[in-house]
Simulated assay, not measured.
Amino acid sequence: MTETTEQMRRKTIPRDISWLSFNARVLQEAADPTVPLRERLRFLGIFSNNQDEFFRVRVATLRRMSELSGSRSKMNMHMEQSPDKILNEIQSIVLQQGEAFDAIWRGIRDEMEKENIFIVSEQQLNETQQQFIQNYFEEEVRTNTIPLMVESIPQFPFLRDKSLYLGVVLSRKDGSMKRKFAIIEIPSRVLGRFVLLPSPAPNEHHIILLEDIIRYNLRNIFAYFGYDTYNAWVFKVTRDAEIDIDNDISTTLVSKIEKGLKNRRKGKPVRFVYDEEMDKGLLDYLLKRLNLSKKSGNLIPGGRIHNFRHFMDFPDVFPKKGQRRRSFTHPALQHTPRVTDVIQEQDVMLHSPTIPSTQSSICCARRPSTPT
């Protein structure tokens, strides 16, 4: 009996949902205890970078289609589900993957500490380290840091895609001054994200993130404003990176592409990732100025650290041990120049997943069935 169109639709997975399943496999590599720690950190970075690009391109496209729902059939004939339905499913899966990501990251940090590798915050520094980051801030960071009192400027500053920001709340303990908000772009493009600290023991490695160095020096940055309490939370904005080509027939194709690439940097925000501990007043202010809504599905709460793509460049402080098992040639394929000759005779398993999971798959070359 021939399947109905509706039955076939139920078996079809939208390509964007399928892509998230692919990225989940990257996350599985980060969770694999047989993978060296440095590579596991890199897989976290790859996962994060992949997800950023996914929102810039695929989610941005779906949102455009949602806004032009009346023209959906003309824009993408192969879609069987509405863009809004797919976006809701994406939001749910991304939040679930975020929880898995956080759990894996906590496990990796525990493993790193067993290897005497410590990522410390501004609140965990000893006196020597405090003096070190004060000097480092004055010599390297201050000239690359521009704090913006966003309530004092008429136009909200443009927040760059791929950049990381600190949202700062300035206040006084006695309540004598009105709270103020500020934004600082983390200059990781110039200085890198990680700074090696003087360690209390020769076999230990203490590392601090650049944003925590800035957090430690907030009092120094804003001293002339008269406040005595400073709190800061990390956030980032992901923008629509689709290229719009002008239809002006008097313009050359090269000029159209150049203009499209320039405008690409100023795309609408499609995702706002923030520290879930962020001050509610600051969060509401940022969303209002970015024209985002808590009900829009653009908001992704997370932990204290964001932009994990930088972890692909984590300092190489790991002990040289625990190398991954080397690949080997399948016994059935050792003495034949043609794989097809072997699979004509038997099935050959090429890969077996190392992590039990409903998303894992076994890759095998199957012997073709005999025609009847």
Rank of each mutant, 00 (worst) to 15 (best):
L197Y: 11
E185A: 13
S171G: 07
L191C: 11
V169W: 05
K173Q: 10
D174M: 06
V169M: 14
K173M: 03
E185N: 12
G167P: 07
K178F: 03
L164W: 00
L191N: 07
L197F: 05
F194G: 11
I184H: 05
D174Q: 05
R179D: 11
V195C: 02
V168F: 05
P187Y: 11
I186N: 02
L191Q: 07
V169T: 15
G167K: 08
V190N: 12
F194S: 10
F194P: 13
F194N: 10
L196N: 10
F181V: 09
K173R: 13
R172I: 00
S176L: 08
G167T: 06
G192C: 03
V195N: 02
V190H: 07
V190R: 13
F181K: 09
V169D: 03
L164P: 04
Y165T: 09
Y165N: 10
L170E: 08
G175P: 11
S176R: 14
P198S: 01
I183C: 02
S188Y: 04
P187F: 12
I183T: 08
R193I: 00
S171A: 11
I186F: 03
R193S: 13
R179K: 15
S176M: 01
K178A: 10
A182F: 07
L196S: 13
V169G: 08
R193L: 06
R179V: 00
S171K: 09
S171F: 00
L166N: 11
K173L: 03
I186Q: 05
F181S: 10
G192D: 02
V168K: 06
K180P: 00
R189N: 14
G192M: 04
S188I: 09
S188T: 14
E185K: 15
F194T: 09
V195A: 04
R179W: 00
L197E: 12
P198I: 00
P187I: 14
R172A: 05
G175V: 11
E185R: 15
E185D: 07
P198Y: 00
L197H: 13
V168L: 01
S188R: 04
F181N: 14
V190P: 04
F181Y: 15
Y165W: 06
K180V: 10
V190A: 08
L191T: 09
P198N: 03
L197D: 12
S171M: 02
P187V: 11
F181P: 06
G175D: 07
R179M: 07
F194M: 12
I183W: 04
K178R: 10
G167D: 00
R189V: 05
F194L: 13
L170A: 12
M177A: 15
S176H: 11
D174F: 09
L191E: 08
M177P: 03
S176I: 02
L170C: 15
G167C: 11
S188E: 07
G175S: 04
L170R: 09
R172G: 01
S171E: 06
K180H: 06
E185T: 10
R172P: 08
Y165K: 12
S188H: 13
V168N: 03
L170W: 12
R193D: 12
M177Q: 15
L196K: 15
S171D: 08
D174E: 08
Y165V: 04
Y165E: 06
E185G: 03
S171N: 10
L197I: 13
S176C: 02
K178Q: 12
V168G: 09
V190I: 15
A182P: 06
I186G: 01
I184A: 07
S171L: 00
R172V: 14
G167H: 06
